[in-house]
Design a protein around this nucleic acid. Structure first.
Lengths: 336, 336
DNA sequence: CTGAAAGCGCTTACAG
DNA sequence: CTGAAAGCGCTTACAG
């Protein structure tokens, strides 16, 4: 069928060892042989057998990527960045989704066992210890947006704290003092960090600021509901900072239905900068995160860990988050 | 390091052949041995070496997936469906993007050569012949939304024609007669099919219908521009059917800026049912396609072709597209 | 600089 | 029903 090393060796009248050396660029080979082998390999359309190759090298050049689900642009962006980095490193991405189910997760993990040189995992609910127990103990693992950080060689996060802090600062610059926050799910690290950023900023950069924290779960419905609670208040906040765009959009719908104008009567802002944020009216001021960069860095760092295993304690790296000013905040970007 | 077949065999006091048979469920093995091997394999946490395995079986259980890019929910949905089907079949997805660049495409393709048992490719611009030349000739290839259909074992398409046809019929049911169409790119098969559906429906199910075809390229900006052209018309159409949602959204913006109300003065509809379609005001009536199903079917059919190579001519399969009635069409779903 | 040979971990006829 | 053995296609010390 397909040509093997042996075929190339026979045709080029050299040993398989030399063919291997030429094709891999390892060891020293004379110029004549090099040229002859290259020519024959091309002519025979030689493609190395990956199985045999990884059997010898103990590397598959595959990076496993375990995602909780596949809905929405967060994941396509993440994969896009990861794929770009992997390609540059001559590696491939092996993708699997866990559907946020422990049983599915361990099945997906087991199926990757032995197939990959390293693992990129995003496990909002599952902890890293479970992961480490399921996988070969020396498999490099990089965690993404996962609270657990011990049971891996490193982790990547969005700068949720910094983004939320900057957003509150921007709202303050727009003149708002009484700023409500619709938080995300309690078990979610992104939500917790955004809340922490909101609180610290309220305390540190909003003189005379007044806090109000409402529950949420990242869905549009919850944003809608939170807005109802706010509408029922005797004194309404001047601005609402939702922990994500979907809740901000739900919130705006409720406000507008009640005849409350955004941003004139109440400003509304979100977090994530999903595509829709640009298209709702008024266009949503939000926090933009370069998710593709997160994916790129995760792969790059994982590849480093694969090549040079380190005994250092796991390290966390953060991708910046920036305020994107549109219409819904009722302000302009300050000169500063 | 990791336990091998030999380790399990030694520990269980049987031959490696028996271990292999038990673990693969092939051949006949006595109950005693079966139990002992299973116990030892579990205890030693045995994981087969994929390289060695595929070296013998000549199968990698990997499906290559070549996508033009990674932006947007179309791709995350496609991957989601494909991954689900692959998982059920005990296979994995190897993902790569071509960035719609011939050089990148052939690099990605070559890198997959020998790694995968079959290929799923979406190549809007590149033709399948190029693909077939780059890959091993007997590699099963399934094309997605690709015009070329000869150089593969099959192809999958969205029912663009049927969806567009149904949408025009719906607009007619809403009472519209003069219906404009903003078409997509000329070199795009989806765009061509939607246009064909529009034309046929106009001729067949819109008595006294009047056509108007405007150029477009699937971007919001082009939708905006097309709306300007329409606004400049002496006699304006009653409805605008954009070949995708993004153009429909751009179109609505332009209309609203000009003080033309949607759907009262002009109805606007799209195609794709992107997430944003639900959130714009008025909510966009559009055509919804189950992209995940497309991915699922593509993998399933490809897996069939891998297992039982067929000499039959390549076959095309279509995933249905349904009209989703919201507010922007100015009508209601007819009783029929 | 080059080649003969061992061996990676597995599957599968082939004997018995 | 079970095992000894060949061999998949490659890489890499080891000699020369």
């Amino acid at each position: 069928m397909s040509a093997t090393l042996k075929d190339v060796a026979r045709e080029a009248c050299v040993s398989v060892a030399s063919v291997s050396r030429v094709l891999n660029g390892t060891g020293v080979v004379g110029e004549e042989i090099r040229a002859r082998v290259a020519e024959v390999a091309a002519r025979l359309n030689y493609v190395p057998n990956i199985g045999a190759q990884s059997l010898m090298t103990r590397r598959t050049r595959l990076i496993g990527m375990l995602l909780p689900r596949m809905h929405g642009e967060f994941f396509s962006e993440l994969i896009r960045g990861a794929d770009e980095a992997a390609r540059e490193l001559g590696m491939h991405l092996l993708i699997s989704t866990s559907h946020e189910d422990t049983e599915e997760t361990s099945r997906a993990l087991r199926a990757m066992n032995g197939r990959v040189d390293g693992l990129l995992a995003m496990l909002p609910q599952v902890n890293g210890k479970f992961l480490q127990e399921t996988m070969r103990s020396d498999l490099p693992i990089m965690l993404i947006s996962t609270a657990d950080v011990e049971h891996a060689c490193g982790s990547m996060h969005v700068d949720n704290y910094g983004g939320a802090y900057a957003m509150v600062r921007h709202l303050a610059d727009c003149g708002h003092r009484y700023i409500a926050h619709i938080r995300g799910r309690r078990d979610n690290i992104d939500a917790e960090e955004r809340l922490r950023g909101y609180r610290d900023a309220m305390a540190q950069v909003v003189p005379g600021g007044r806090e109000l924290i409402l529950h949420g779960d990242f869905t549009e419905e919850f944003g809608y509901q939170a807005a109802q609670e706010i509408l029922a208040l005797a004194e309404r906040p001047q601005a609402i900072f939702a922990a994500n765009d979907l809740m901000a959009i739900g919130c705006m719908s409720a406000l507008m239905e009640a005849g409350v104008t955004v941003p004139e009567q109440i400003a509304v802002v979100g977090f994530d900068d999903i595509t829709t944020a640009r298209y709702v009216r008024p266009a949503l001021t939000t926090v933009c995160v370069k998710i593709a960069d997160l994916g790129r860095r995760a792969v790059t760092r994982l590849a480093d860990a694969i090549v040079t295993p380190s005994e250092l304690p796991p390290d966390t790296e953060t991708v910046p988050a920036e305020v994107v000013v549109r219409k819904s905040c009722g302000g302009v970007r300050p000169r500063s």
